[in-house]
Amino acid sequence: MDPVLLVASIMVSATPILLAAIGEMVVEKAGVLNLGVEGMMITGAVIGFAAAVGTGSPVLGFAAAALGAAVLSLTFGFLTQYLLSNQVATGLGLTLVGLGLSALVGAGFEGVRAPGPGKLWIPGLAEIPVIGPMFFRHDFMVYVSLLLVAGVWAFLKFTRAGLILRAVGEDHESAHALGYKVVRVRMAAIFFGGACAGLGGAYVSLVRVPQWTEGMTAGAGWIALAIVVFASWRPFGVLIGAYLFGGVTVLQLNLQAAGANVPVELLSMSPYLITILVLVVISARGVHGAPGSLGRSFHASA
């Protein structure tokens, strides 16, 4: 088994869930649990595909996917933030809507070929033996996903806006008392999460597969939710989690291809068991893993 090819494959396979998970992490950091990631991803997949076919530009495809899924996520935001509906139920509803809507929008795009982004060799770095082909010969979205992780990390850690976002997620009553606009912050986070999920979906339909088929994200959105938990809401944890979750699938397939007998079910459930373990460990240490207000509706009683 060639580790270089393996790592390169894992990076491609992990990028959709990485994109979706980093967006969802920001949403959850703001105290909102949006279970509709799958619905936003599949919407991004179809809109990105359609836009890339229509304009001939994969970059525009990705942009349209981000925008489309983000707009869809605003319905979730409106319901949960302004009409104070339950986040779990609304998120599940968003998944239903996304799956249905994408199938209707996508009718007619089956069997169509979309322009995919080419490989972008990072000058200099791509030539390094071993490291080069592993990390520096991917399409631009792989680098975008990594930059997003770093960007989110820096945003949460160093900026005032990031601090406010965390405060809102940790304790919305206090944040409100301090004069922060809880609902607006959360709407912005939801919008960002939707855009990221849309990018992740478009990566499936434009790069990883690349084609449009109904229901093609096949549960990737749910994996993204697990990754956020695995990461215990830290950006670089999300990176590791996405590569671990994506890596287990790719590794399992490679082991099979190499002729090894692998207990497929055991291997596929292992990331989730590890996630539970991680959750237990962080909570046993007394650290507050999840943001304090996660999943709770906020209503400013005047």
Partner: peptide, 10 residues
């Protein structure tokens, strides 16, 4: 004190 939403989902 582990969050039951996430454990039950996993």
């Amino acid at each position: 004190g582990t969050n039951e939403i996430l454990v039950s989902l996993m």
